[in-house]
């Protein structure tokens, strides 16, 4: 005798009901939680930008952001101007930090589209820093970050994060020992051309004393993540480099 649950009609009914129930639960949750999640993401972006500027609550080894209840005020205080560069156009836009870099990169594949490039101007201790968002691909998924530079294109602060790099290996790009290595590295080579920073495995300078060699020490076992990070620094910051090279000339 055929069991009731083997009938085709039952199978189809079950499938339809399940799709409806699961779809309804997920759609309800996703739309109900979206505003809260969006606020969290915005605050996180502000925290990350401030972190790169050096506004954070780090102690000796930890990575500690400005707390979420203070971040909006601190952001207004330290980030004095947000610019968006699009083609020959430059505009001041207080929501520039919300620009989705992933979308901009994707639309830029269309040659007629002029990409929106955010540039944040931060002032800390009376020093002006240029902060630029970068984004690229690691081993498993996206990696991104914010780079703060002075007018010589020397890194004054950096923040990296990732979506799903291997814990213990590639995931360590958001740890202090890796990020702090970049501070002081100059992104231009000695002749004043843009060079970026290589994440080097055959580094002659593992404790990173030489800041002008355009190299930092790699994380052992995280080759592809490291390559992704140096590729994103190279390709994304190169776009901005003409501004700094121009500054140097004058």
């Amino acid at each position: 005798m055929e069991k009731r649950t083997d009938k085709n009609s039952y199978t189809i009914l079950f499938a339809v009901l399940m799709v409806l129930v699961v779809g309804a639960i997920l759609a309800y949750l996703a739309s109900a939680l979206k505003p809260t999640i969006d606020v969290n993401k915005q605050l996180e972006k502000q925290q990350n930008i401030l972190y790169a500027l050096g506004v954070n609550e780090n102690d000796e080894k930890s990575v500690a952001f400005v707390s979420t209840d203070k971040v909006a005020d601190e952001f207004d205080k330290y980030i004095v101007k947000q610019l968006v560069i699009q083609g020959d156009d430059v505009r001041v836009d207080d929501t520039a930090y919300l620009i989705d870099i992933k979308k901009e990169q994707a639309s830029a594949k269309n040659p007629s589209y002029k990409r929106q490039l955010p540039l944040f101007l931060g002032v800390k201790d009376n020093k002006l820093s240029y902060i630029v968002p970068i984004r690229g691909k690691g081993l498993w998924d996206a990696v991104w970050g914010y780079v703060a530079m002075d007018e010589n294109m020397t890194v004054t602060g950096i923040f990296f994060d990732h979506k799903a790099e291997t814990p213990g290996l590639g995931a360590n790009i958001n740890q202090r020992f890796f990020m702090d290595d970049f501070i002081g590295e100059n992104l231009l080579d000695t002749s004043g051309k843009f060079a970026g920073v290589d994440i080097s495995k055959s580094n002659a300078d593992p404790i990173n004393i030489d800041k002008l060699d355009n190299e930092v020490d790699a994380i052992a076992g995280a080759t592809i993540t490291g390559d992704g990070v140096s590729a994103m620094i190279r390709s994304e910051l190169k776009v901005y480099s003409s501004y700094f090279i121009n500054l140097k000339k004058n």
């Binding site: 004095v80 590729a231 480099s241």
Partner: peptide, 28 residues
């Protein structure tokens, strides 16, 4: 791995940025 795309910020935009930056330096 370098895509070779050499699109950089244009001269015109650079001057506009400099104008914006100038204001900040003066203010501080």
């Amino acid at each position: 791995a370098d895509s070779g795309k050499s699109e950089v910020i244009s001269q015109e935009a650079i001057q506009k940025i400099e104008k914006e930056v100038e204001g900040i330096v003066n203010n501080s």
